[in-house]
Design a protein around this nucleic acid. Sequence first.
DNA 1: CTGAAAGCGCTTACAG
DNA 2: CTGAAAGCGCTTACAG
Lengths: 333, 333
Amino acid sequence: MKQANLTEVAKLAGVSISTASRILNSADGTIPISENTRQKVLSAAKQLGYVPSAAARILRMGASRTIGVLGTSAEFFRYIGTYGGHSFANESMSGLMDAALRHGYHVTLLTGLKETEGLLQDLGVIDGLLVLNHDLSKYPDPVALLDAFAKPIVYVFDYPSQSVYSAPDDSGGAKLAVEQLLKAGHRDIGFVRKAEFKALFDRRQKGWADAMQAAGITPRPEWLIELPDSSELRTLPPITAAICTNQGTFQRFHSQVQALGLRVPDDISILTFAHKSSPVEELNASRVVVSVADIVAHGVTTLIHLIEGDGKVNLSRLFAYEYKPGITLGTLT
Amino acid sequence: MKQANLTEVAKLAGVSISTASRILNSADGTIPISENTRQKVLSAAKQLGYVPSAAARILRMGASRTIGVLGTSAEFFRYIGTYGGHSFANESMSGLMDAALRHGYHVTLLTGLKETEGLLQDLGVIDGLLVLNHDLSKYPDPVALLDAFAKPIVYVFDYPSQSVYSAPDDSGGAKLAVEQLLKAGHRDIGFVRKAEFKALFDRRQKGWADAMQAAGITPRPEWLIELPDSSELRTLPPITAAICTNQGTFQRFHSQVQALGLRVPDDISILTFAHKSSPVEELNASRVVVSVADIVAHGVTTLIHLIEGDGKVNLSRLFAYEYKPGITLGTLT
DNA sequence: CTGAAAGCGCTTACAG
DNA sequence: CTGAAAGCGCTTACAG
């Protein structure tokens, strides 16, 4: 059974397409319509089971009330809802849907990520794009690529210059982390990271280096620890404390430190970046946290304001980290 | 800066729209194109930052490679990603995105649920619809409503007659639960439910009643316990065991039973329906479980087969429950 | 109060 | 190898 279209409804009702269209979109109450005609059209539509073509309407109107979301990677959306699993994906979805629901926007999760210039060829019908810490560096010319997209874009957990973003203040978070360790008496403070999420981790690392310099300490090169993906850490540089760039890194580093026979926090203090709901909480790690859900929700709200052309939007925003003490930070006396 | 369209690209390249279109959709390799023309068009498109209009293409082609998802309620999507929270929403999303990614389909989460006949007016641009245990009974004429939708629909966790579904075998699950309790020596077995999710819980309840009858036991009316939403349970009927219709009901019932001074399982055994990852696991409740993720993933796969017109699809499917023993089921001797 | 017509941006037979 | 034209299904000035 093929879907009936406006033409068929109009024909059955014995009116023109224009009239049928007006009646079926009662939205526009300014144009007067005779009650008789209205009934004829309504019952014709009902009888034929008329469902308007979203594609045609959107093509004509230029708006779909749908936003698209680009995940961190093609695999990103697979992590949603894995219980106790990927806290970033889960918190993101929570903030995303919360904001989208509030504004009555549909959300399209963009799964067909082409790792080429073809990225923009398949975004579906969306009014704006939310870029969720997606690794743009893998495209030949990311700036040009996204400049070509004439609809609003908001970056989340990332802040390319010239663009609108909603992100955590990683530099400030690193500063906060360093200050806590200084306060506890540490001076030889390392920074532990992995190769992934380069841009994000670079910002956190720079924040660490800057805060150290500001405290009159020049971090020695070996204080920067890049955790290898598979092999184990053989030795540790002469540090009394370390900042881990995320929860995965923390868990890995924490267990490797113990494997080297060192005790936490007696021999080494550890402080980590974390999400509000991440499992690190269960380990009671000392951490600087930020709410992923809030950041994503703010990104969505900003995007929708941009789409709707609300001029009074407070555009980009940086969210401050908060320090949560835990058992992995000892005091050096 | 407005988005350039095909006409502008063609003009800049000095060719016709038809030619530009053919080149920009290299898919169709059957039509030969001179290399020279190809280069002109490609560079014009690049220079103008051409992004094709998804709406126009979909209107013309009739397919969007996007499926829409209707949640259990308008609030449903808000539960996604809430850590430790709504296991049904989380498991659903996991199965949903897993299957969608495998097939390269985008997913639109339908948030604008109109609680009226207007439901179909705002589904966005989708090729098919997944109905996730959505309460259809609240619409005046649900069957007609969805019959009017000329695209494929797959129901998940629900099985309206005449439709394609992917659902748990609730009747079989109840039978399994009763059998376990019978095996442990019980005969006076109650069924505990709440008012929500009526259709689903009705099926489970009927399964319980049928299995009891099959064992030669006629459940007494008071063995059916409807948990009040706010007030407490004052008394318990003379049963030695009870089956709870879901995890929320179990937690409520379990605590109220204890508030009445009864011990589990010494005074009363409890067995509950649950999801694979639901928190009940932490309580180590005796339960019959089914994988929500698997059921949803199968629904998505079926929907996509339907969309793509693959005739050899094994359509509707019922998933069997599995019994997981826990500490809440004692043996009556 | 109603209708004829243009046009949103594409794709694809069809004709050269 | 390339182009002119029809048409996907709507909405909305414009003219009555």
